[in-house]
Design a protein around this nucleic acid. Structure first.
Length: 415
RNA sequence: GGACGGGUGGGUGAGUGGCUAAAACCAGCAGACUGUAAAUCUGCCGCUCCUUGCGGGCUACGAAGGUUCGAAUCCUUCCCCGUCCA
């Protein structure tokens, strides 16, 4: 565990901090309290304790997760204590937020593996030296049944059922398991244990955050400020970015992949991306937007710039430039990519094209591979493949470029 | 514990003995058009085999059995979900 950061005594003026912190924010509850807390912090030279709780339900984080992370980073930049809370315990219950059905429980092992890969990715944004990393199993594992009963005693069923997900499920006669009611209460105990001043969450977390505030008060603490961030819309332009919907950009993806995905978002969406996943100021964004509106800047160029900025944040400026160049070459000039991922194959007997596509994981099944070829989706060294049954010679060392679908390229090296 | 309703492909949801690999819609994929944007249009959309044919085989309608030449559809048992009553 990282030790808490020693207090910094050099805070910026409150108004300046507020302006920085408010960028992109959906809601601050209650509005006035953040200012009051910042003033108190400035007066006493005590950093605010600001936390973001994340359940490691998947091994990778995507751009959508970075919206709240970036806000936590803003607090960190201003000298406050950023606490990254890994919900290793709560992940095993499952957050009912936005769920139309009960989440399958994760095992402790899965959660641990995910937590590890999470942290590595989180530190692409946060400063590891200044971040307090905590796990909620630290305190939740220790609660006795009595403690849990007491905790539950602090909240009323009617209030719990007010939340939209539950209301909807009840209205539609969908099941709600009792343990799902416990989720916001147990994560509220996190806020109690951390004695937090501010908690950051996506807007969909609003209900949970409000419960956290109430429970802190029940335990004799001052209620934290709940700061919510908008949900990042996914690549399809409609639904929230999520792995299960497949409309996401993973932050560990290659620059080329990220670039391609960013370019595929609807134009209108790029402004919200500028706001939520770059460090551009609201004024700069407004200016860009104006230039696109009056025709001075082509929307595609604005989007290419967005892609580069996002990649630069994770992979550096050089990688970003390369990705942009590559994109230009492949999709605007219709040439093969300069660098496609290389796949080495041992020499051997010839293989049918459809078989090869499946083995290279360019198609999930032979039927799909067949279809892909028949639908003119496969090229070998720029030449359209017509026949899924054609034999691909693998008997001698050679290499060729295989394209499957719009975006997938693989340089095959037979050796 | 009782009464009633329900469980169909990634999702919604038709289908109540053969015409059903299962309507329709959504999502997804490919192609055209473009700025790999959106919108639009066209096609595909369980797996597999080959002699690629309006071909063959296999798997699939909560689970397991059964009836039948034939079952998502009928029967039995079981599991799961909901509503109401207690």
């Amino acid at each position: 565990m990282t030790q808490p950061v020693p207090p910094s005594h050099e805070f910026k003026p409150v108004d300046e901090q507020l302006a920085y912190l408010k960028k992109g924010v959906a809601e601050i509850i209650p509005e006035g309290d953040l200012k009051a807390k910042l003033e108190h912090s400035l007066k006493t030279g005590t950093p605010l304790r600001v936390y973001l709780g994340v359940d490691p339900t998947a091994p990778d984080i995507h751009l959508g997760h970075t919206v709240v992370l970036r806000k936590l980073k803003h607090f960190q930049d201003l000298g406050h204590t950023a606490i990254f809370l890994i919900g290793d315990f709560s992940a095993m219950i499952g957050d009912p937020t936005g769920r139309s059905e009960t989440r399958p429980p994760l095992s402790r092992e899965e959660v641990e593996v995910n937590a590890k890969t999470y942290l590595a990715q989180v530190f692409k944004l946060l400063d590891p030296a200044k971040t307090e990393v905590r796990y909620n199993s630290e305190w939740l594992d220790k609660l006795s049944s009595y403690d849990v009963v007491r905790l539950c005693g602090h909240y009323r069923l009617a209030r719990m059922l007010e939340r939209e997900d539950f209301r909807t499920r009840l209205a539609e006669s969908q099941p709600i398991s009792v343990h799902e009611l416990l989720y916001p209460l147990l994560t509220a105990y996190d806020a109690v244990a951390l004695k937090s001043d501010v908690e950051i969450g996506a807007t969909e977390q609003k209900f949970n955050l409000l419960v956290h505030r109430d429970i802190q008060r029940e335990y004799g603490l001052a209620s934290e400020v709940a700061l919510t961030m908008p949900i990042l819309v996914g690549l399809d332009g409609h639904r929230k970015m999520s792995k299960s919907l497949g409309n996401y950009v993973g932050i560990t993806e290659s620059p080329d992949e990220i670039f391609g995905k960013i370019m595929s978002i609807p134009d209108e969406l790029m402004w919200s991306y500028y706001e939520l996943v770059t460090d551009r100021t609201p004024a700069e964004i407004a200016e860009l937007r104006g230039e696109v509106a009056n025709g001075k800047l082509h929307p595609m160029d604005a989007k290419m710039n967005l892609g580069q900025e996002i990649i630069a944040g994770f992979h550096g400026a050089d990688a970003a430039q390369k990705a942009a160049d590559n994109f230009q070459r492949v999709f605007r000039d219709r040439q093969g990519p300069v660098e496609a991922p290389v796949q080495r194959l041992p020499r051997g007997a010839a293989k049918k094209l459809s078989v090869l596509l499946v083995e290279l994981q360019l198609a999930p099944s032979k039927s799909e591979a067949d279809r892909l070829v028949k639908q003119k989706g496969v090229e070998i060294d720029g030449v359209l493949a017509e026949d899924p049954r054609q034999d691909i010679d693998l008997s001698q060392a050679r290499e060729f470029l295989l394209r499957a679908g719009k975006k997938k390229f693989l340089r095959i090296v037979v050796e």
